[in-house]
Simulated scan of single mutants.
Amino acid sequence: MSRVHRIPAALLLTGATLLAGSGLATAAPALPPAVASLLDTASSAAGSTTVAPDAPRLASVDNFRDVAGTGTGYATPTGNVNKGVFFRSNALSPSDADLATLGNLGISTVYDLRSDEEIAAKADRLPEGATWVHMPIMSGNTSTGSVMDSIHTPDDAREMLRQANRSFVTGDFERGSFARLLTSFAETEGAQVFHCTAGKDRTGWTSYLLLSIAGVDQQTIMDDYLLTNEYSKDSIAKTVAYIQGTQGEAAAAIYAPLMGVEASYLQAGIDQLTADYGTVGNYLTTGLGLSAATVAAVKAKLVS
């Protein structure tokens, strides 16, 4: 077991993004038809004649995508989610070519949800004209080293991510951060990007809140959450292989659950929200302290 604990915390923080810029990363493959069809099932909004283009696939930022999905956008009871408004991502460290592509999306603001430690390991590169806002989500903004030392089995790893999602509901610091983030979403003009390191946990909960505000059904939200495993599958596999090659099969098996997502991770947060607040609306207004006007402003950006 001693070999397992020598894995650097930075490796586990970066997860599937470890090899970006290392010369080993490859272009993200096109989505399989089954996954692509999942994103294209929303019906057109009443009276809509134009739909924004799909978010580009970025080889160097493989989990960059539109919160609204693809095609006509995810369906809601009052229309489809607007594309080109909110983007989610893993660490925003694009190649020159991908940076140029990002420059065509009208991005006004990039919210970095990571800790100081993560940012020091891989700083953002912003498209021209975009403002960077540091919005750390996790309590204390501290090193993860002690947390990693507590993981001894794959189930420990899974439970760590379940507990992280619960903390988005129970943690005072975390709730305060999400309140500031959603308030900024409501008050900021232009396309907005939010991201953490792998674009799956802090970013996943943020996307869950946005899609819930929009009125997207819960199964579609969960399916969207799980798309990280498809978008980042090559880099996840390479990271697991790297751990196996440098630290052994036991370490790779223990830490593999941290690299992707499982439904139980997000569901743990949803179950905690239901237990503590009953509904997403109550969580937003009572738990985060948001005004009804702020929530309505976010919804108006999402579904118009």
Results as ranks from 00 to 15, higher is better:
Met160Cys: 02
Ala198Ser: 15
Pro127Trp: 05
His5Gly: 01
Phe173Thr: 15
Phe86Tyr: 14
Val110Trp: 06
Gly289Pro: 06
Ala25Thr: 12
Ala36Ile: 01
Phe64Met: 06
Ala68Gly: 12
Ala157Gly: 05
Glu230Gly: 04
Thr153Val: 03
Tyr283Cys: 04
Ala297Lys: 14
Phe194Asn: 06
His5Arg: 14
Lys301His: 06
Thr188Lys: 12
Asp156Asn: 15
Ala25Met: 10
Gln267Pro: 05
Lys200Leu: 02
Arg114Gly: 07
Leu31Tyr: 03
Ser167Gly: 13
Asn90Ile: 01
Leu19Lys: 05
Thr50Cys: 13
Glu230Cys: 01
Asp96Val: 13
Pro257Val: 07
Lys122Met: 13
Ser264Val: 14
Ser264Lys: 05
Tyr242Pro: 01
Phe86His: 07
Thr49Met: 13
Ser167Trp: 01
Asp40Cys: 11
Leu258Tyr: 01
Gly278Lys: 08
Pro32Met: 03
Thr109Cys: 11
Asp112Trp: 04
Ala297Asp: 12
Lys83His: 12
Thr228Met: 06
Ala100Ser: 14
Asn141Ser: 04
Gly84Ala: 12
Pro257Leu: 09
Phe86Thr: 08
Ala300Thr: 14
Val67Met: 04
Ile270Arg: 11
Gln219Asp: 14
Lys299Thr: 06
Ser184Pro: 00
Ala46Gln: 11
Thr50Arg: 15
Thr109Leu: 08
Leu273Asp: 03
Leu258Arg: 04
Thr220Cys: 06
Arg175Lys: 15
Cys196Arg: 03
His5Pro: 00
Thr131Phe: 00
Tyr231Lys: 11
Val193Tyr: 04
Ala120Ile: 05
Val133Met: 09
Asp112Asn: 14
